[in-house]
């Protein structure tokens, strides 16, 4: 498998390093090579384009230019915000008058706008067959088998459609497909694409709390045991802010990165997936799931053994019957 250029973005080097850790671990399992873009810089996030349209294009474009110069045609931007900024810049340069011509001067590099941008969900969805196979081949019992998980896409993975376009903007399914590939059960809930408060994480915590609570409550009321995300912003808004919610006596809801989920299904150790770095403790959930899985496997094994024993007994009986010359149609067919 060819390598893709990996653009971690600031969050994956900082507040969401578990996304980076779990992505690398899972990619290695799935045989996907990641090469970090040398000397990448911040995409500007929402502060860039909120302040100046050109800056909002140029900051991500620098990274596209680096990937291009380093010989790649695809960039993987797991952080939904980076993915959105990189894709939006790519589209703007391709469609808006004059931008393409301005870029080399602004960046101080030649730039042909030739690389595609993908996000982590897209990557995993495209690998879902491999995931399924690997999960089936994993020796340890799959802790996610049949577990209800809510896929939360938020804004930046699906909107605007012109920029993202890899999935339906209102009823997306890509992350649900990955959940299914892991053997878990995707929850049909209502807040998949509602906003979590995004960049107001720091500056307007009250808004973020209001929006986050609506999302978590809805997932819970639909029976989800955890929410799966693919965006550091969503993760911190939902995970970190639960501290305030917990103070009001609300049940904690674990928030997992999609890569962490895949890692668990593949039997990787929670610590290697950075699962200890969350504010909402994931340990109780994982412990429970592992136990549940072990029990299930044991029960299945028992059932299998019993069935085998029964079949053996039946075969025995039949043999006796054949020997006694009372073979019926059934016996005839078996030959």
């Amino acid at each position: 498998m060819t390598d893709v250029a990996y653009y971690p973005g600031c969050s994956l080097h900082g507040t969401s390093r578990e996304f980076d850790e779990s992505l690398r671990a899972v990619a290695a399992e799935l045989g996907i090579g990641l090469t970090e873009i040398a000397d990448w810089s911040c995409c500007g996030a929402s502060s860039g384009h909120t302040t100046d349209h050109l800056l909002g294009v140029a900051l991500p474009a620098r990274n596209l230019a680096l990937a291009e110069a380093q010989g790649f045609d695809t960039v993987l931007a797991p952080c939904a915000a980076c993915y959105n900024r990189l894709s939006a810049a790519r589209l703007a340069i391709a469609t808006e008058d004059g931008l393409a011509e301005q870029m080399p001067d602004i960046l101080g590099h030649p730039f042909a706008n030739s690389v595609d941008v993908h996000n982590a969900v897209e990557l995993l969805r495209d690998a879902s067959v491999t995931i399924e196979e690997k999960v089936a081949a994993t020796l340890a019992p799959n802790p996610l088998e049949g577990v209800k998980l809510a896929a939360y896409y938020g804004c930046l993975l699906v909107r605007p459609f012109e920029v993202c376009g890899y999935d339906d903007p209102e009823q997306p399914t890509s992350m649900d497909e990955v959940i299914d590939a892991c053997g878990a059960d995707d929850v049909d809930w209502d807040m998949k694409v509602e906003c979590c408060g995004g960049a107001f994480s720091v500056s307007r915590t009250a808004s973020v709390l209001r929006l986050g609570r609506a999302i978590i409550d809805n997932a819970r009321s639909h029976g989800a045991e955890a929410i799966i995300v693919a965006c550091p912003l969503c993760h911190s808004n939902l995970d970190l802010r639960q501290k305030a919610m917990a103070q009001r006596g609300e049940e904690p809801m674990p928030i997992l990165f999609v890569t962490q989920m895949v890692g668990l299904a593949l039997g990787l150790a929670p610590v290697d997936l950075g699962l200890g770095r969350h504010f909402v403790d994931t340990e109780p959930l994982i412990a429970r799931l592992v136990q549940q899985a072990a029990k299930r496997v044991a029960a299945e094994k028992l059932a299998k053994e019993e069935a085998a024993a029964k079949a053996a007994a039946r075969a025995e009986k039949q043999k006796v019957g054949v020997a006694a010359g009372t073979s019926g149609a059934e016996g005839g067919e078996a030959q």
């Binding site: 900082g14 000397d39 050109l54 800056l55 620098r62 200890g276 770095r277 969350h278």
Partner: peptide, 26 residues
């Protein structure tokens, strides 16, 4: 949780970033 560090990561091409800000007039 190892999510914050006291040391900043600084890239080699900081000058390029400054240039981008200048060219965009920000």
């Amino acid at each position: 949780r190892g999510k914050l560090s006291f040391r900043a990561e600084r890239i080699e091409g900081v000058a390029e970033i400054k240039r981008i800000f200048e060219k965009c007039g920000v």
